[in-house]
Nucleic acid binder design. Structure first.
Lengths: 101, 101
DNA sequence: CATCTATTTGGTATTTTTGCCAAATAGAGA
DNA sequence: TCTCTATTTGGCAAAAATACCAAATAGATG
């Protein structure tokens, strides 16, 4: 049973919509890392980090590969850097409350 | 007090990480719409739609403008179409469970 | 095979998000 | 000013997401 297009997109976006997960994705923009590296980076419980990674992989945002004792995660979403650059140009609530312009 | 960069990015991404909100954003890719149009589109309570719009505007993803009786919302994030196209190319959980490759 | 290490899974308490109703507001027009 | 319409806000119950602990798993290695 195929999920509707919107839901698949939402799942991928949700996979990036959390501080720890976005930090992971940003880090992986610089190349693959093993889970232990990512847990050190995020600073949360290992199980928490693992669940974040599973969620991101299920959404298609990451792929992983075992090598020796470690499992290495990699970013599957090549468009992330440009998207983040674009987001940084937005002006969040730049005009106070109410409807601006 | 400036929010850290990661949090601003997360806020913008969260603003898109909900079926109704993504539907709104996708619709606005085709040009501005008034709140009433968007509520008809989404099919939820007017107050619910309004809160989604506020959240998206606070995150910088939308801007709005009053004209006559209506308020028109517009997409501020020009990179959305390309980002969505990119997401559609991901292969969510294409390889069953466990670590693939 | 026994064990060790890295990672995942199950379970649950806590926090956050969501959605509706009712009430408030803001501006347009009589 | 009074009223009407479109939209927002406040409040709260229900649903979803998050984080930790403990236990399980999967390979690697002795």
């Amino acid at each position: 049973m195929q999920r509707p297009a919107v839901d698949r997109r939402v799942a991928a976006i949700k996979a990036l919509a959390h501080p720890s997960r976005l930090l992971i994705a940003e880090t992986l923009m610089g190349g693959e890392r093993c889970v232990c590296d990512l847990q050190a980076l995020v600073g949360a419980d290992m199980s928490t980090v693992s669940k974040h990674l599973s969620l991101m992989r299920a959404a298609g945002v990451l792929t992983c590969e075992r090598r020796g004792l470690n499992i290495y995660y990699r970013l599957a979403c090549s468009c992330l850097p440009e998207f983040l650059r674009c987001l940084d140009e937005l002006a969040p609530e730049a005009c106070g409350e109410g409807c601006c312009d």
